[in-house]
Amino acid sequence: MRTKLFSYNYLDTPIHKLSGLTKILSFLLLTFAVMFSYDIRCITGIMIFAFIIFKMAKIQWSQVKLMVVYVIVFVLTNAIITYLFAPEHGVELYGTRHELIKIFGRYTMTLEQLFYQGTKLVKYASVIPFGIIFLMTTNPSEFAASLNKVGVHYKLAYPVSLTLRYFPDIQRNYQDISLAQQARGLEMSNKASLKSRFKNALMIIIPLIFSTIDRIDVISNAMDLRGFGKGKKRTWYSGKKLAKIDYIALGLSLLIFMITIYVSIFINHSRFYNPFI
């Protein structure tokens, strides 16, 4: 079976029950907290929280394996490049220098750099689970509604939901076109050179675009005929009313957000936590 990009499945968990609005707001609050703070104590706390939520949402490892592998590769590459370009950044930030080993030329490993990059890794490790949870547990229908509720204009938010609606169609269409073109002799395997593979890809994409344009015409007519774009606002059939559990979730997210900010401003007096002085 083909893998689906957004494999939303309704499960009976407290996380799935939250309204889309709660999820997007909590996601934004927690992400902002993690992005803002470089205090490894706070971030580790949030990371543990993220893993607990992950468990609660009953997300299966197999569902997210591929995504996680990509993310790990990206994060590690990012870490290596950060070090290559700015090996002394930690020293600049924390103002002390505890050299551990000398590697080559100006590249030395300092405790400060290790601490700085370690903090960054933990940041990624806490934000990414929230992103995955948000994608996997939000009903696509609610997606646009929640975007709209946090201030995105509905004419921008609705296409998001339309994309989710028509994505599988386009995927299927792509598959069919690709097979029919292969029957005509199109080589899609690695045997062909890069240049001819690019040319061959065009032979699938051009028919795909033309048959998709036909559809877009139908869709936009259908939407016009039913009054889309008439008013400045619109309401949402699938938007859930906030329940008690939503307020609890929002409260918890807000609390974590405030603690993080409080620690930064009143305890660390900076976005960074400095254990070296």
């Binding site: 229908s141 989710l164 609606r165 259908a222 889309f228 606002k233 619109r234 059939y237 699938s238």
Partner: peptide
């Protein structure tokens, strides 16, 4: 199929009402 703009039957039926706020 093309004129089905909602993600579910309920949403699609409600589409015009949504636009009427």
């Amino acid at each position: 199929d093309g004129q089905f703009v909602g993600l579910t039957v309920g949403e699609d039926i409600a589409f015009a009402m949504e636009n009427d706020e």
